[in-house]
Computed example of a mutant assay.
Amino acid sequence: MKLKNNIFTALLLTIGFILHQITPGILGGMKFDFLLSFIFISIFLNSTFRNTMLTALLGGILSAMTTTFPGGQIPNLIDKLVTCLILFIIIKGIQHFKLNSFIVALISGLGTFISGTTFLISALLITGLPVPLKVLMITVVLPTILINGVGTAFLYGIIKRALKLSGVTVDNFNA
């Protein structure tokens, strides 16, 4: 993996980290995970297995550092690894299609669902949940699916256009 690809991934995750950090916690200490949008964009733009694992690990660590969920550090690492691996497989499976806003939003929504579900189930098994799983799925995960799906599609378009206009190349760039 080239250094510029690592730097680009780190830059995307830094932006997502800042947004994740300033997002207030809601019901039961849960917060919308805007870092996911930038994790997904990193994988869309550089869909190599190495970048996927780097993104999952760094994203999990950054999420764990900012979690407001009691005992949410380990579930954050688990959910990012599981989500990134599944999305990597999905993105490789549709690699022959051009990624448009609809596909990006759909995959991002699915990734958010996988991430939220994995996080909540692993948190339930490791530390317990402050409120019932169903309540957290309805009040946190479902709204985040919509926000991340639309937001990721919007941000992906902007970042893809900025890369083309600036002449910056990312290996395995999926334009």
Rank of each mutant, 00 (worst) to 15 (best):
M1P: 07
L3C: 12
N6H: 08
T9F: 02
L11N: 04
I15E: 02
G16D: 09
I18R: 01
Q21C: 04
I22A: 06
P24Q: 12
P24M: 14
L27Y: 13
G28F: 07
G29S: 11
G29E: 05
L36A: 13
L36W: 00
L36R: 00
S37D: 10
S37M: 15
F38P: 08
F38I: 11
I39Q: 01
I39F: 04
I43C: 10
N46M: 10
S47D: 13
S47F: 01
S47Y: 06
T52E: 06
T52I: 07
L54A: 13
T55C: 14
L58N: 04
A64I: 10
T66N: 09
T66F: 05
G71P: 07
G72N: 05
P75N: 04
N76Y: 01
K80I: 05
V82P: 03
F88V: 09
I89C: 10
G93W: 05
I94M: 14
F102H: 03
L106Y: 09
L106T: 14
I107A: 12
L110M: 15
G111C: 09
G116M: 01
T118S: 15
F119A: 04
F119Y: 12
I121Y: 08
S122E: 09
A123Y: 01
T127L: 05
V131W: 00
V131I: 15
L133I: 13
L133H: 00
L136W: 01
V141H: 00
P143M: 10
P143R: 09
L146D: 06
I147G: 05
A153Q: 08
A153K: 02
G157I: 11
I158K: 11
K160Q: 13
R161N: 13
G167E: 11
G167P: 12
T169P: 00
D171R: 11
F173Y: 14
